[in-house]
Amino acid sequence: MNIQEMILTLQKHWSDQNCILTQAYDVEKGAGTMSPMTLLRSLGPEPWNVAYVEPSRRPADGRYGKNPNRLYQHHQFQVIMKPSPDNIQELYLDSLKALGIDPLEHDIRFVEDNWENPTLGAAGLGWEVWLDGMEITQFTYFQQIGGLEASPVTVELTYGLERLASYIQDKENVFDLEWTDGVTVKDIFFQPEFEHSTYTFEESDTDMLFNLFTMYELEAKRTMDNGLVFPAYDYVLKCSHTFNLLDAKGVISVTERTGYISRIRNLARSIAKAYVAKREELGFPMLSKEEK
């Protein structure tokens, strides 16, 4: 099964579970969790079920396309369900079956793994799911988001698509994976991997990035003060990615580093609060009538 078919299969599976299929969010981010479709929407009492593919950028992991396992940008298939359904583990295992993974022919285990992202004031409990010893999915019950208690609890499933594909297609090098018939990951992503690595580690304009960070931060604050939660959050994402670029280049000193992280965290926290307040003001429109 090529990656394209995997995506279609997962989309179909989760669509059948009444998940909204959205598209990847169009601002750079380090993980699917940071999409507003997850981070903001998992806050507050409104039900929310969504699935999407998220290209995730981790500048520090860039290896010029030379490492068989590490990428500047990899793909996550993200599923978010709020409140977490009682049969979520079964739903998840069914998705593996849909991908052609028969549990009776493999060893599938749920191994404790607690997740924390201090930059987003977020924490959750759950597992890494192992398929014959390989971690294929991060399975997390959010307990806290943006410094706020998650209530009701959102469950997040993050499939590492390249990992899973390397198992399904039995390939050792990520660049050999088939995206679709006759087209490999290498065909599509090798050049960007090489160029982004070169840019990140050698070519990026440090002064400009520092300026951008400050500008994005100011814009995020200003926008939030005007009560515009989503635009403000976009600028937080931009701050985060800019910081990641600077950090990967090794130009952020230690003391500054903690400072930058806490600046992003403070922004994320106040946006989380503002989002919930705004939804409340709107009367939590996605709550069904009985629940109100």
Binding site: N69, E105, H106, D107, L131, D132, G133, M134, Y167, E172
Partner: peptide, 15 residues
């Protein structure tokens, strides 16, 4: 199908 499991684990360890 224990051999599938063995093969999978070997692959992970090799990586």
């Amino acid at each position: 199908k224990l051999q599938t499991v063995v093969k999978g684990n070997e692959k992970v360890l090799k990586a």
